[in-house]
């Protein structure tokens, strides 16, 4: 299902080598998210790799439009913004269109510049998708007990003391685990979402 070949076809040539590296890293981090998102949008399985690739190409094309504003890590921030806009545009489109073939029409539809401002609801939806994706990744990084401590107290809202008793751990370790998990989820999200988004 995963298509590592995609990355080779998406090598971009940038003046700054560091930006090329940033792009490569971005694709590595972002592609799994895209696959998940495309699937959740109701795309039939056989079209998922294709649509994912189209989205990455759309993002890659926009890379050419980038010029440095001299700020630190601005390429990465900008990349995050373009990606978000491409994805939101994609989510906005009718379901019947995305199930179809790719091609240049598709590219035109989702190709944008970083100036486009998507509507609030879609931005929320995008963030929602990112959170789910990040949580799924982080879940596999932690021990079951830690994750359960996080989930039951933070998501289900149960009392720390009760859960501690149930899991046979101290409440201190629950505070520790769930903060760690939360910090990791946040870090995962900020890998693809630019910083200004994070703080808002």
């Amino acid at each position: 299902m995963r298509t590592p070949e995609t990355r080779h076809s998406l090598i971009v040539r940038l003046k700054d080598q560091r930006n090329e590296l940033a792009w490569a890293e971005f694709v590595c981090a972002y592609e799994p998210f895209l696959v998940r998102l495309v699937r959740r949008q109701g795309t039939p399985d056989r079209h998922i790799p294709d649509i994912t690739q189209q989205l990455l190409i759309a993002i890659a094309r926009s890379v050419n439009g980038w010029s440095s504003d001299g700020r630190d890590a601005s390429f990465r921030r900008w990349l995050g913004r373009v990606a978000r806009n491409v994805v939101i545009k994609f989510m906005t489109r009718e379901k019947k269109q995305i199930t179809g073939q790719g091609g240049s029409d598709f590219l035109q539809l989702i190709e944008l510049t970083s100036d486009d401002t998507p509507d609030e609801a879609r931005s929320q939806q995008y963030e929602h998708e990112l959170i789910l994706w990040a949580a799924e990744l982080v879940r596999s990084e932690f021990r079951d007990t830690s994750w359960r401590a996080f989930w039951t107290t933070q998501v289900e809202g149960r009392a720390v003391a009760d859960v501690a008793r149930e899991l046979g751990v101290t409440s201190g370790s629950i505070y520790m685990s769930r903060s760690r998990i939360f910090a990791r989820i946040r870090a995962k999200i900020s890998e693809v979402l630019d910083d200004s988004e994070q703080q808002s």
Binding site: E127, H128, I131, L132, A135, W151, Q154, V155, E156, G157, Y175, M176, S179, R180, F182, A183, I185, R186, Q198
Partner: peptide
């Protein structure tokens, strides 16, 4: 510790997203 991990509104956004 929780504050260091993230601001309260971010905590609640993550929790809400996971809950829904």
């Amino acid at each position: 510790l929780e504050h260091l991990a993230g601001q309260p509104q971010v905590w609640s956004r993550v929790s809400t997203a996971l809950k829904t």
